[in-house]
Design a protein around this nucleic acid. Structure first.
Lengths: 252, 252
DNA sequence: CGCCCTTTTGAGGCATTTCAAACATTGTGG
DNA sequence: CCACAATGTTTGAAATGCCTCAAAAGGGCG
C-alpha cells in the first residue's frame, strides 16, 4: 500500500484557519473561552488534507506536535519487534493525536489515514508555551490524554475478558456512541476501516469477523451491507456485548 | 479480601515530607530544578502507608488528586459492566497514579496495594495551580500520562499479538527492566503479585501461568521458587518473548 | 473488461481453557 | 504450638473456541 510521508504543516506564520473554520465537530480550540480562544487559535496550523494510506506520523519519528482531527478518520497502530502490528485505536473528528510521543519526544505508534483527512496541528513548542500561559488549555490537553488512557485501558479489557462475539458487539456499540456524539446517526453508519483492521483491533482472525457479521445479521441484531451497518436491535447487541468469555477472571 | 477505603491525606497544611524524604527512587518532585522543587514540594502531602489489600482509589470515586508511589507496589484494574475484572497495570515506586480520572474527574479504574505502600499525593486543585505556575511541572505530568498511554498500548499489543508463552516471557523481561531502572537486580527479583494477578494481566488462565513457569524453568531460561524469579538465560527469554502467535496480523 | 484485493464460506486442527483434584502456604484460634 | 480453614499453586485429562488453510465469490479500479 502506498504510504507517502506527509510533511508537517509549515511552521511559518501561516494564517490560522480557526476564525474561518466552519467545522461543527468538537474542537480543542472552540472549547475555550472567547478571549483565550483567539490566543490559542493564532498558533493552530492547518495543513493540506492527506489521503487514504498516508501517514500522519510514524513510529520512531521525532515528535513535531499534536494533531487535531477535523474530518475523516485515522487508525493508529504499533509495530512490535517481531514485525507484528496491533491496531491501537480509531480516531474521528475532534480527537487529538500525538500524545504517545510526549514521553520520549518520539512517536511510539503510527497513525495512518483511513480516508481523506483534514487536520490542524500545534507544534510542541507552542503546546509548551500555551499550556502555561493559557488557563484551560492545559486541562483540555490533559483531558485529551486521559481520554486516550481510558480508551486504551478499555481496549485491554475488551481483549482480555471478552469472547470474539462480545468484542465485535462492543466495538459496534462504541462506534455508534462515538458517531452519535458527533451528531451522526447512532443506528446507521459506514465503517471507514476494513474487516482486516477491525479483526486486528479486536485481535481475532478476519474470517471470524466475517462470520460474526453474518451471524449478527442472521440473529436480527444488525444489518450489514459491505461497510454499511444498521443497528436493528440495540438490546440484542448489548446482550451480545455482555457475554463474558472464557475464564472466571476474578481477582482483588 | 479486606479492603478498607483509605481516606485521602489531610488537606490541611500538613508538613511536606519532601525535604526529609530519603527515598532514592525516581520522583516527580526531585526531577525538578532546585528552586522550583521547593515550590512544588510545599503542596505534596504524605499520608500514612496503606497495607496489602487496601485501595488507593476505586473505580467510580470522585478524583481527589494524583498519587506518587514511594514504596511498595500497586495493581490497577478495571471492572466491566458484567463483573469481569481486567488488571491494567502494575505500579512501582516513582510511578504516578490517577491520570485515569483526569477526563471525568472520576476514577475509571481501581488501584489496590499488593504490599505495604507509601505514597505522596497532590490534590487536583494544586495540580491545576502548579501546572500553570511552575515551568517543568506541566511537562513532567504530561510525560507521566504519556508513559501510561505507551504502557497501555504495549499491553494491548501483548494481548493481541502474542502467544501465552510469549506474553509471560515479555512480562518477565519488562519487570526485569523496570526493576533494574530502579537500582534493583535485573536478574533476580521477587514478584509482588500473585499468579492470579499475572494470569489476569496477561489474559490467560492461572493454570497456564503455572505450567509456563515450570516449562521455562525446565528449559533453563529461569529459576522459579514461589514468588522469587531468577533469570538464567536472558537470550532464551527474549527468544520466547518474540515467538509471535497465531494469525498473520499484517495491516496498514 | 480483467486483474487484484477484500470478503465470505467451509472443514479440520491446535493452543488454551475448563474441570477436577492433589498439594503447598498462610493465617487463625484454641 | 498445632490443627483447621481459607487461599493460592500445581498437575492431569478432556473439551472447545477460534485459528489456519483452502478456495470461491464479490467489488473496485486502471
Amino acid at each position: 500500500m502506498q504510504s507517502n510521508v506527509i510533511s508537517f504543516p509549515p511552521t511559518a506564520q501561516s494564517q490560522s484557519t480557526c476564525t474561518q473554520c466552519r467545522s461543527t465537530n468538537p474542537c480543542l480550540v472552540r472549547s475555550l473561552e472567547g478571549k483565550l480562544r483567539g490566543e490559542v487559535a493564532r498558533y493552530v496550523m492547518s495543513g493540506p488534507p492527506i489521503r487514504r494510506g498516508e501517514h500522519l506520523f510514524r513510529q520512531g519519528e521525532a515528535m513535531q506536535g499534536l494533531y487535531m482531527l477535523r474530518a475523516g478518520s485515522v487508525k493508529s497502530y504499533l509495530d512490535s519487534a517481531d514485525g507484528c502490528e496491533q491496531v491501537a485505536a480509531f480516531h474521528f473528528p475532534g480527537d487529538i493525536l500525538g500524545f504517545d510521543a510526549l514521553a520520549e519526544r518520539r512517536h511510539m505508534s503510527s497513525a495512518i489515514a483511513l480516508e481523506t483527512v483534514a487536520f490542524c496541528s500545534i507544534s510542541y513548542e507552542r503546546v509548551m508555551t500555551l499550556a502555561t500561559s493559557v488557563p484551560g488549555f492545559w486541562s483540555a490537553l490533559m483531558r485529551g490524554a486521559a481520554l486516550r488512557i481510558n480508551d486504551a485501558e478499555q481496549h485491554a479489557l475488551l481483549l482480555g475478558q471478552k469472547s470474539a462475539p462480545a468484542r465485535l458487539a462492543a466495538f459496534l456499540l462504541t462506534l455508534s456512541h462515538r458517531f452519535s456524539a458527533r451528531g451522526c446517526s447512532r443506528n446507521e453508519f459506514n465503517l471507514s476501516m476494513s474487516r482486516q483492521d477491525i479483526a486486528n483491533y479486536l485481535a481475532v482472525a478476519v474470517e471470524t469477523i466475517s462470520r460474526l457479521f453474518t451471524d449478527f445479521q442472521r440473529q436480527g441484531a444488525i444489518v450489514v451491507e459491505r461497510r454499511f451497518i444498521a443497528i436493528r436491535s440495540r438490546a440484542q447487541l448489548e446482550a451480545l456485548a455482555l457475554d463474558g468469555q472464557t475464564m472466571g477472571a476474578m481477582n482483588a
